[in-house]
């Protein structure tokens, strides 16, 4: 029953989102797109627009993207059983 209810909920949300996006259309202003395409080489001296965005325009995104990998490792170290060092040495160090 719970699975049926959750499946129905997911399908309902999917249909709702599709319906809203077909009924209600928004034309976005392409200002940022045009700016990046035209000026990224002048601003960042990179020939690759993706690198220009990742390392200059959206630097916060890259910084916190690098942080979530470290956060994932910290979470693994805390929640996986075991000490995380070598198999042979882990038991001795854990006992001390």
């Amino acid at each position: 029953m719970r699975f049926v209810a959750s499946a129905l909920l997911v399908i309902a949300v999917f249909v709702l989102v599709i319906g809203i996006t077909t009924v209600h259309r928004v034309e976005l202003d392409p200002f940022i797109y045009d700016y990046v395409i035209h000026y990224f080489e002048r601003d960042t001296h990179a020939k690759n627009a993706v690198a220009a965005i990742l390392l200059n325009y959206r630097m916060y995104d890259t910084m916190f993207e690098a942080l979530i990998l470290l956060t994932a490792i910290i979470g693994m170290n805390h929640f996986l059983p075991g000490t995380g060092s070598r198999p042979g040495k882990s038991e001795d160090q854990a006992d001390e």
């Binding site: 990179a46 020939k47 690759n48 993706v50 690198a51 220009a52 990742l54 390392l55 993207e65």
Partner: peptide, 9 residues
């Protein structure tokens, strides 16, 4: 990474 597709990740 700054000239061609690719990069640090």
């Amino acid at each position: 990474g700054h000239d061609t597709p690719g990069g640090g990740f």
